[in-house]
Simulated assay, not measured.
Amino acid sequence: MDASYLPSAIKQFEYYKLLGDKTFAQLNRDQFFWKQNKEDSSIAIIVKHISGNMRSRWTCFLTEDGEKEWRNRDDEFINSFTSQEEVIACWEMGWQCLFNALNTITKENSDTIVYIRNQGHSITEAINRQLCHYSYHVGQIVFLGKLSAGDDWKSLSVAKGNSKEYNAEKFSKEKSRKHFTDDL
C-alpha cells in the first residue's frame, strides 16, 4: 500500500461523514424519518444500514470475515429508531468502528488479505469497496435531506451560480499540495 493512500482514504471517509453531519444539522425529527412512499428508505433507515455495514465490515476486519454472523442486514431496513438522537448515535457508532479499524493498519499488516462473504480483498480493495458504498449512501442522505428541507436547504458544495467566484478565490492562491478537504 502506498504511504499516501491510507491518510487520503481516511480524509475521504471523514469528508463523507461531514456531509452527513452537515445534512443532519439542517433537519428536524420528521425529516429524519420522511419517506416518499412505504417502499423507500428514510434517512434513518439508510443510517441504520450504513452503521450496520460498518460495524460488520470493520470489527476485527483483519482476522474475521466482514459479513459477521451477528449481522441482520434485512433488519437494517426496518426502522427501530424513535428520535433523531438515536439515529445520530447509531451513525457515530458506525463511523467510530471504521476509524478505529483504519487506525490499526500498519506497514506490517498492510498486505493482509481480508474477506467479505468469503471473497478475499487486499486492504486497499476493501477500503475502496467500502468508500464507494458509503459515499453512495451518503449521497442518498444528502439528496433526501435537500428534498425534505426544500427552500431552507443550505448547499454543502459550491452553490449554484457561485462557480466563478469560488474558482477565482481558489486561483488567487499559490499552488499547494494538500487534500481538498483541508479547507472545509
Rank of each mutant, 00 (worst) to 15 (best):
D182K: 11
E64Y: 09
D152R: 14
L156W: 06
T63P: 02
D111A: 04
I113S: 06
D75K: 15
Q140P: 03
E125G: 09
N162K: 15
M54A: 13
F61Q: 04
W95T: 08
L147W: 08
I116D: 05
S80P: 05
K38L: 12
S157I: 15
N103Y: 09
E108M: 06
T106G: 06
L131M: 10
I88Y: 09
C60A: 15
A101W: 10
T59G: 06
E108G: 05
T59E: 09
F77K: 05
N79L: 03
S157T: 15
E69S: 10
K68D: 08
D151L: 11
E76S: 07
N103T: 11
L144R: 01
E174L: 10
M93E: 13
K170W: 09
S172I: 02
R129Q: 08
K160G: 14
G120I: 02
R177D: 10
D111G: 01
E169I: 12
D152P: 05
N53Y: 04
T124C: 01
V138P: 02
N103M: 10
L62M: 11
L102I: 02
T82K: 15
E92K: 15
N100K: 14
F99C: 05
K175E: 09
R117E: 06
Y134G: 04
E169W: 07
I46H: 04
G94S: 07
Q119A: 10
S176N: 07
Q84T: 06
W153T: 12
Q84W: 08
L131P: 00
S148E: 05
V114W: 00
F143Q: 10
H49E: 03
F171T: 11
L184Y: 11
D183M: 12
L144T: 00
R129M: 15
D183Q: 13
D65H: 11
L144G: 03
I116F: 15
V114R: 03
S155H: 07
C90H: 02
E169N: 12
G139R: 05
S122T: 12
H49N: 05
G120L: 05
E67D: 12
N118K: 12
E108S: 06
T181K: 12
G161P: 05
I105E: 01
N53M: 04
S80N: 14
V142P: 01
V114F: 01
R117F: 03
E108Q: 09
Q130Y: 00
Y136E: 09
N167A: 14
E64I: 07
Y115N: 04
I105L: 12
G94M: 04
E39F: 06
L184I: 14
E85F: 11
K164G: 08
F77L: 03
K178F: 12
T112M: 09
S56K: 01
Y136N: 09
E92P: 02
L98P: 01
S83C: 10
N103G: 11
G150S: 11
I116P: 01
Q130L: 01
E108C: 05
K146L: 08
I141A: 01
V47W: 00
D151R: 14
D183L: 13
S56N: 03
I43V: 15
I116E: 04
S41G: 07
K178Q: 13
T82W: 07
E169D: 13
T59H: 10
F81N: 05
G52H: 02
S42E: 00
K160M: 12
H179C: 02
G66I: 02
Q130N: 06
T181I: 15
G52C: 04
T63D: 10
C90Q: 03
S122P: 00
V142S: 00
W153V: 11
S172D: 05
N37I: 07
